[in-house]
């Protein structure tokens, strides 16, 4: 304070700033998605989850081309072989069970290894897990598709039109959602054989409900926003407004909800297969592997543990990534 008294008035000079200079914005222009990615990258759990999912996806897709062994080939000489990783003598991965080298006892030729062991029909567990994961991811893609096409479309149409159309569409949703998923699947079994088809139909009927409701609520909020009114006064058609104004503003809701639908769908399939009304016997899926594994839980626990690890990692990764995406796209909702 005291020092400021000694500053002479002529020490100040009037700064001349041009009018255009005043409007200048120095910050780099970031798009909304760039901003969201920046926030997502700060979330370690989400980034790790993302890369885990990429690895799982890549391995599952690779199983289309190549698997260590034929996943469905039975060889009764090789039943219940414990995991063996080459000639590396790692405990639990050296082909020994109760101190006996099972590979030698079953006269497995040298150079044939089963990295995660074999099941009661001598099928390679690793190959079956890879194929099973592929089925789970296929279910995930189907559920996403219905979420995006049916859920988003239904929600936007219902919210945008309002009035009796909205009322009717919401009553339909309430009727569908009042029937439990499991009942739908069991009813499907009356029409279809148990298998992928009945699971897909069950997902088609029920999985998009939550998405449709969320999108409708958001659309109701957006349609009275002034930028939507401005588009109307400019003469934009309803379809174009939905495409240019609604969907981009709904994108965070869509992405986040999709990330929550996927694990639900995967878990749903695993659950159905586990209780035996999902995929039929020879096909491998995470659910059928768990079902087979629990029968030998006390003698060959690895048959249950490895598929269980895969499904746990899938669930966790999807949920953590979904959390990360929600925080990234909607920073206000965090905490």
């Amino acid at each position: 304070m005291a020092a400021s008294k000694h500053i002479a008035p002529d020490a100040f000079k009037l700064a001349h700033v041009a009018a255009t200079e005043k409007e200048y914005i120095a910050a780099p222009a970031l798009t909304f998605s760039q901003d969201a990615m920046r926030r997502l990258k700060q979330n370690k759990a989400a980034v790790i989850s993302f890369w885990l999912l990429v690895i799982i996806f890549a391995a599952a897709l690779l199983s289309l081309v190549i698997t260590p062994h034929d996943p469905n080939a039975q060889n009764l000489n090789y039943t219940y072989l414990p995991p063996k990783w080459g000639d590396l003598n790692i405990p639990f991965f050296n082909g020994h069970e109760n101190g006996i080298d099972m590979y030698a006892r079953n006269q497995v030729p040298k150079g044939t290894y089963f990295l995660l062991g074999t099941d009661y029909l001598g099928r390679d567990l690793l190959s079956r897990i890879l194929v099973g994961t592929r089925i789970s991811l296929f279910i995930a893609v189907i559920a996403t598709l219905f979420d995006l096409v049916v859920g988003v479309g239904y929600g936007i149409i219902s919210g945008w039109n309002g009035g009796w159309i909205d009322t009717l569409m919401q009553r339909v949703i309430e009727i569908i959602s009042s029937v439990p998923n499991l009942v739908v699947v069991i009813l499907m079994l009356l029409v279809f054989k148990p298998g992928l088809k009945s699971i897909i139909v069950a997902i088609a009927v029920t999985s998009w409900i939550t998405m449709a409701r969320l999108i409708r609520a958001q659309t109701l909020k957006l349609k009275d926003q002034e930028f939507v009114l401005a588009a109307k006064t400019l003469g934009e058609s309803s379809f174009q407004i939905a495409l240019k104004h609604l969907v981009p503003n709904l994108s965070s809701t869509i992405i986040i909800q999709t990330m929550f639908t996927i694990p639900t769908a995967i878990f749903f399939e695993a659950f159905l297969s586990y209780i035996g009304i999902g995929l039929p016997a020879p096909t491998a899926s995470l659910g059928t592997l768990l079902n087979d594994g629990q029968k030998a839980l006390q003698t060959q626990p690895y048959l249950l543990i490895y598929p269980a690890i895969v499904i746990v990692v899938l669930m966790l990764a999807f949920n953590l990534l979904a959390d990360g995406l929600r925080d990234a796209f909607d920073p206000r909702s965090a905490h």
């Binding site: 930028f227 934009e236 503003n249």
Partner: peptide, 26 residues
């Protein structure tokens, strides 16, 4: 029309260029 709320009348997901050119495109 010119709207009341300058924070709600521009689509937050569109560039200024595309906001202004919306009428030009239509």
């Amino acid at each position: 029309m010119i709207f009341q709320d300058p924070y709600a009348s521009l689509n937050p997901r569109m560039k200024v260029k595309d906001i202004i050119a919306e009428g030009l495109d239509i």
